[in-house]
Nucleic acid binder design. Structure first.
Lengths: 198, 198
DNA sequence: TTCTGAACGGAACGTACTGTATCGTAATAG
DNA sequence: CTATTACGATACAGTACGTTCCGTTCAGAA
């Protein structure tokens, strides 16, 4: 995920992997501290102890840099507990436990907003988002194979149903979602809203 | 929602309501065209045909200006169809029909991201977000009173369950959500994911 | 009517940042 | 060794922020 050609084995000084990692780390640290809007390439350069040109040799601008840094943040992890309920609760609990230790809350919505006016960004983001979501999709596939899911359920939409409430609370309402809340959320998505009376 | 004191009835030239509305309109137009990041106060001033100082006399910075403009964007509208299903489908369909005609896709996530590093913003946003969500909450209250909801359902969480998938698709996945998709989404939230076999 | 004061658009200003270019030095391959 | 790429630090032209200023306009008070 290098936005700029990194040159093959040619005569010349090789790119410094140390600088590369220092830049990504500085980006994540500053995202946490000041958020996306206030993040500057100059600030990243200073924090990472590199020259600005070093950053611009690798990334065309702030946005692709933040996209790559974003890709290093925690996503859903594979869990196979034997039941959909177990998978979902475990996965979401893990995600939430990681959430507060990362700049996800500022980075993810900012990237989402940028993409509304930058179609090129979708090409960078979509594969990454899909990858990050993959463990969740697998949990649903297993559930369908086990006959746990209603037959007419669209798996993609099902995943959105489970992830949606958490995303709204974390990202849009700025709420603290404690990992213990996961149970109630998953239960609700699994059993639905309507009274069994109908 | 005036961020700067607007002076009572004193001797002096009164604030121009025309300028005020022109500024808000220019803000929304430019949000649509260039998004939050690329929106500049200088650009808004030029588009609205006002001086920069005119904007800064009313709003401390770009952020409160965008917040006020955001508050003018479509939200959920009150619908009372007699059933929860009818209410939800109607409300969400209306919301989606309006969505594409507004800069919601860029503005809302950006404000959400900003709030992660600006607690003061929560004080501006929270009342507004609550107000925008109120019709939805009322639909759930009516449903509970009619006995349509399962007795243990938390209304706030229920609303998040319904809104969540749409929010994820609109804001985070950059998907086109056609108003006709509303039926499947609401049906899924109402009936849940799990097979009736269990 | 004049006086006072707030607001107006346009412009100037110091500061910060963008993205590019440059420089002397460093690290490689051939 | 030469040629080449990369490094950090710095300079540069351009843009935008937020503040200040100016001449003009719009209102209330006297």
């Amino acid at each position: 995920m290098r936005s700029r050609a990194d040159g093959g084995a040619t005569a010349g000084r090789p790119r410094s992997e140390e600088a590369h990692q220092a830049i990504l780390k500085a980006t994540l640290d500053l995202l946490s501290e000041v958020g996306f809007s206030a993040l500057t390439v100059e600030g990243v350069a200073h924090r990472a102890g590199v020259g600005k040109a070093t950053i611009y040799r690798r990334w065309a601008s702030k946005l692709p840099l933040v996209v790559e840094a974003f890709g290093e943040l925690p996503a859903f992890e594979d869990v196979d507990s034997g039941s959909l309920e177990g998978d979902l609760k475990s996965m979401l609990r893990r995600y939430l436990e990681n959430f507060l230790a990362t700049p996800l809350a500022a980075a993810y919505p900012s990237l989402a907003a940028e993409r509304a006016h930058n179609p090129d960004l979708s090409e960078l983001l979509d594969p990454m988002l899909k990858r990050r979501r993959r463990p969740l999709a697998r949990a649903f596939e297993r559930a369908r194979d086990r006959g746990e899911l209603r037959p007419d359920v669209d798996i993609d939409l099902a995943a959105d149903l489970v992830v949606g409430p958490i995303a709204v609370r974390l990202f849009f309402r700025g709420m603290r979602v404690h990992p213990d809340m996961v149970d109630a959320m998953v239960n609700l998505a699994l059993s639905g809203l309507v009274s069994r009376r109908s």
